[in-house]
Amino acid sequence: MSKFSKGKKRKNPAISTASLPDIVFMLLFFFMVTTKPRKAENFVELKEPTLKETVVLDKDKSKLYFHVGMPKGQKNSVHRVFVDGQLVQNYTEISQYLKVFRTTIDEAQYQDLINVFKVDEGAPMGDIKKIQDELREQDALTVQYSSKKK
């Protein structure tokens, strides 16, 4: 009679899956935390127009974002303009900003620059015109209005 029995086959112990939920939850939280909307959209009330002839925004070209809308939570306010997430007090700041921006990238890239306008449906065209006059001042002539597909 041996001390160590040979007759019984030893079973492989099952791998504990107890920590699996933790790993998966960690993944879940990671994705939930990292996917957040662009900054300026957080403080401007935007209702974008719904249109038929929209095209997809080119991802590879350099872009500058313009937000025109009312500050969130202020119903009877005026429409404000944000360039690259910064509030514009005076329209001439826009061409100043572009002038500086122009020096940071090379000219060929600058000529391809897309000015993405995220504008609230109710914004007055006079404001848009003032922004675009500033853009023309610095030869940034491509404007793309963000919209939804009908």
Partner: peptide, 26 residues
């Protein structure tokens, strides 16, 4: 947990930005 993960991955599609282009005059 996997089901939740997959659900969020599928529903939070990065919707492509759609635009209407206009060229400003010089």
């Amino acid at each position: 947990a996997f089901l939740l993960l997959v659900f969020f991955l599928v529903t939070s599609t990065f919707n492509k930005d759609l635009v209407l282009e206009e060229k400003l005059p010089q």
